[in-house]
Amino acid sequence: MKINAFTKTYEGRRVLDFPGMELERGKIYAVIGANGSGKSTFAKILTGVQKADKGRVHTDAASVGYMPQKNFAYRMSTKANILLAGKNEEKARRLMAELQLGHLENKRADRLSGGETARMALARLMMKGFELVILDEPTAAMDMETTMLSERLILDYVKETDCALVLVTHSLQQARRIADHALYFHKGQLLEEGSADKVLYTPEKAETRQFLEFYGA
């Protein structure tokens, strides 16, 4: 699967300059970097919710699933939200159970807490299979326990659907736990990219090393 090169400029300021890369199915790609380094912009452009400076389609994936950094719950029950992407009741029930949403099934989803909304959004996305899936900080609002459950689920999902999964995360630990590859964004540049073992433990660039040190590596 290919991601083409693109750039993104906001109000005359270049916030992202992506050189393009190949993605392999069945693998998890962690995107790490400081706040404002362009991670969400990268996710939005891959998904197509935002345009790059030139052109629109930047990947040749047949279908792209996306969980935004700010999740939105439609004004209907948690279960109805989850069933939007696929009508499989049994699967919905299983996902709700696995993400500890069972007791919230009939609750209005727009009244869920931040962490609950994130879990609902993850379950909702996983009702469907995509060639490419992009999760923008899916566990940022979750507690440790549900974060672990979500990571387990993400791993299973990738195995089951054989998709390429881009995981934007501010958690270095999370990237180390589940990613196969890692991309380090620095001030809108893809500074370093490669296997997770390499980028997340023994990076080449000084900036990446500094970033890892900040996170208590």
Partner: peptide, 26 residues
């Protein structure tokens, strides 16, 4: 914007997205 972005992320079509938008407006 949120209704659209979310629907697009779930791969929902235009018609379904429109009904979701109307549903938010009731």
């Amino acid at each position: 914007p949120a209704v659209r972005e979310t629907a697009k992320g779930l791969g929902l079509g235009r018609v379904k997205t429109f009904f979701l938008l109307v549903n938010e407006c009731v």
